[in-house]
């Protein structure tokens, strides 16, 4: 059964509320006092895991997987959320370094502006592994693991063309153009789609990666462009926001594609509302980040190139059942 637009929004709101409660329980009390307490030392030491908002299922999955892997390896793991706030990120890193953390796994708040924060830790002999977002400088972090956003967007763009054909009007809703990953996705979409002169992008808006903003954007765009055949979205929440607006407008024949591969997207694919998405292997990326930090702490090197890409997996109705919490189980 298809979800209505209100069901989509309600489900998102529930997820956000639950995640926010988790964030408060795990992080908020210490941060509210401007202080951060690391967990008690583990057998191997102490690792801090810093991610963006835990309201977002992607970051929540990433943090949970990293923490579980660190504990499996014998570390005490503490997870903190910087909420994409550079000041908060700086304070968190300063605090955990001051408390003698052994290593940091960081999904940073801003690719370029995070260089100084990473350098602060490494200059104090605290190794940092970056996951998801890279920084533009080499030799500071011990490893930079990121999703192959170009591959993700390229395969989604090809699926989009296979569905809508090589002509028609479409809309792009980007995720957050302050995030290099989002820029890479947009570029990759256009690297494919712009080679089809009869596919016309009639509107592009930055929806900030958020469902509600995407819904608002889509609603206003539809007033001027009710004849579109498709929407390309920079991430999952944006795709779901577009679907919600299209649903409200009674337009169920518009092809929507996205990138992320959350459970909500999986369900939307299975419901026939989202044509395709590309699942980012958030849990595996996070586990590998912890593995490499562990390897570095044990041996002084990771044994891998600093910059490493991770494959994303195209999800359509044929394989959507294999997606669970940013993990792909191909049985």
């Amino acid at each position: 059964m298809k979800m209505t637009s209100m069901q989509l929004l309600n489900r998102f709101a529930s997820t956000a509320t639950l995640s926010a409660m988790v964030a408060v329980a795990g992080v908020g009390s210490a941060q509210a006092q401007g202080d951060v307490d690391l967990s008690d030392d583990g057998e191997k030491g102490n690792i801090a895991i810093l991610v963006n908002s835990l309201d977002n299922p992607y970051y929540s999955a990433e943090a949970t997987a990293a923490e579980a892997r660190a504990e499996e390896l014998g570390y005490a793991a503490s997870t903190f959320s910087h909420n994409e706030d550079l000041n908060r990120q700086r304070d968190l890193i300063t605090s955990v370094v001051g408390q003698g953390v052994d290593g940091i796994v960081l999904d940073n708040a801003d690719s370029s502006a995070s260089v100084a924060a990473v350098r602060y830790a490494t200059e104090r002999d605290v190794p940092v592994v970056l996951i998801n977002r890279e920084i533009p400088e080499d030799g500071i972090a011990i490893a930079q693991l990121t999703h192959n956003n170009n591959q993700a967007a390229s395969q989604v763009a090809q699926a989009f063309i296979e569905k809508v054909g090589e002509s028609g009007k479409y809309v792009e809703l980007t995720c957050n153009l302050a995030d290099n990953n989002c820029v890479a996705r947009s570029n990759a979409y256009h690297r494919i789609l712009d080679q089809y002169p009869d596919l016309e992008m009639v509107a592009r808006q930055d929806a900030g990666g958020e469902l509600v903003k995407a819904r608002q954007s889509m609603q206003s765009i539809l007033q001027s462009h009710p004849d579109i055949v498709g929407v390309i979205a920079g991430n999952g929440p944006v795709a779901l926001g577009a679907i919600s607006a299209l649903e409200s407008a009674g337009m169920d024949d518009v092809t929507v594609v996205g990138i992320d591969g959350s459970n909500d997207e999986r369900d939307a694919v299975l419901d026939g509302q989202l044509y395709a998405t590309s699942m980012l292997q958030a849990q595996e990326l996070a586990r590998q980040g912890v593995n490499q930090l562990h390897q570095y702490l044990e041996t002084g090197e990771t044994g891998e190139s600093e910059r490493q890409l991770f494959r994303s997996i195209l999800i359509t109705e044929d394989n959507a059942e294999s997606v669970n919490n940013f993990e792909y189980k191909d049985n």
């Binding site: 980007t174 153009l177 820029v183 570029n187 808006q205 930055d206 903003k213 954007s217 206003s220």
Partner: peptide
């Protein structure tokens, strides 16, 4: 409409500038 709704239009020039960074 865009300004009051809290999102922004990205011009082609802006996106080109972003794309050329790095």
């Amino acid at each position: 409409v865009v300004m009051t709704s809290g999102f922004k239009i990205v011009s082609s020039e802006e996106l080109t500038k972003i794309r050329n960074e790095g």
